[in-house]
């Protein structure tokens, strides 16, 4: 495991910062551990954490060799490497919803659609775990219980006018022309029905 501060030297020191309920665990190389003093002696005593330092934590952590401090792009490179080294037994997954494959995933460094999370979960789980240290969400979610979801303004009833306003406002004249044509068409249809009645 690499040092979480510099990312280059192997981690040799484990530092645990404990503030009430909150525990931060760091793995640092010796040099970075020496520089580590945020939150120690010179700090306002109010939020001074309890710090425990353990040497040679690296060996205990050797099972997760990956990426706690890697930048996002490397994450998926990492994924590609895993794939390369094990390609004998991993067949190419393809997302049934968007057609994204493992290869597009590693080229574009992005997922293709929400369903990709299911499709590539086995590959993504360790990455997500390493990056965030957690795999359980603890934040906002849509509030289903607060009664019925207000439906999005339906396409229809004046939406073309609204889109036209926006197209004109941002000088997208190509789109504005399209919308104007559609509006004309709509009006003509109404006229036709009028005449028939």
């Amino acid at each position: 495991m690499q040092c979480q501060a510099c990312g280059t030297s192997p981690a040799e020191v484990q530092i645990r910062e404990i503030r009430g309920e909150e525990v931060n665990t760091l793995y640092l190389c010796n040099a970075c551990a020496e520089n580590y003093d945020l939150g120690t002696s010179s700090c306002p005593s109010l939020d001074e954490p309890e710090v425990t330092i353990r040497l040679s934590a690296a060996s205990q952590q050797s099972e997760s060799p990956s990426a706690q401090t890697m930048p996002p792009d490397d994450l998926i490179d990492d994924l590609q490497q895993t794939e390369d080294s094990e390609d004998a037994r991993i067949e190419m997954y393809e997302c049934p919803n968007c057609g994204w494959t493992e290869q597009t995933l590693s080229e574009k460094k992005r997922l293709g659609c929400p369903e990709c999370y299911n499709t590539f979960w086995e590959l993504l789980a360790p990455i997500i775990h390493d990056w965030h240290n957690e795999v359980a969400h603890k934040g906002e979610l849509p509030k289903e219980q607060e009664g019925e979801r207000k439906p999005a303004p339906p396409p229809g009833s004046g939406h073309l006018e609204r889109e036209l306003d926006v197209a004109i406002a941002c000088e997208d004249y190509e789109r504005a022309a399209e919308l104007r044509d559609q509006l004309c068409e709509q009006e003509n249809t109404y006229k036709c029905t009028d005449q028939r009645t």
Partner: peptide, 28 residues
């Protein structure tokens, strides 16, 4: 966000929170 959340259906799961194009933004 809550206003938009009432009128739009945003990609999310209970466990992962909001789903983003890059897994480094997933959750909140």
């Amino acid at each position: 966000e809550r206003f938009l959340n009432r009128i739009f259906d945003f990609a999310h799961t209970e466990k992962l929170g909001y789903l983003s194009a890059c897994p480094t933004n997933v959750g909140t």
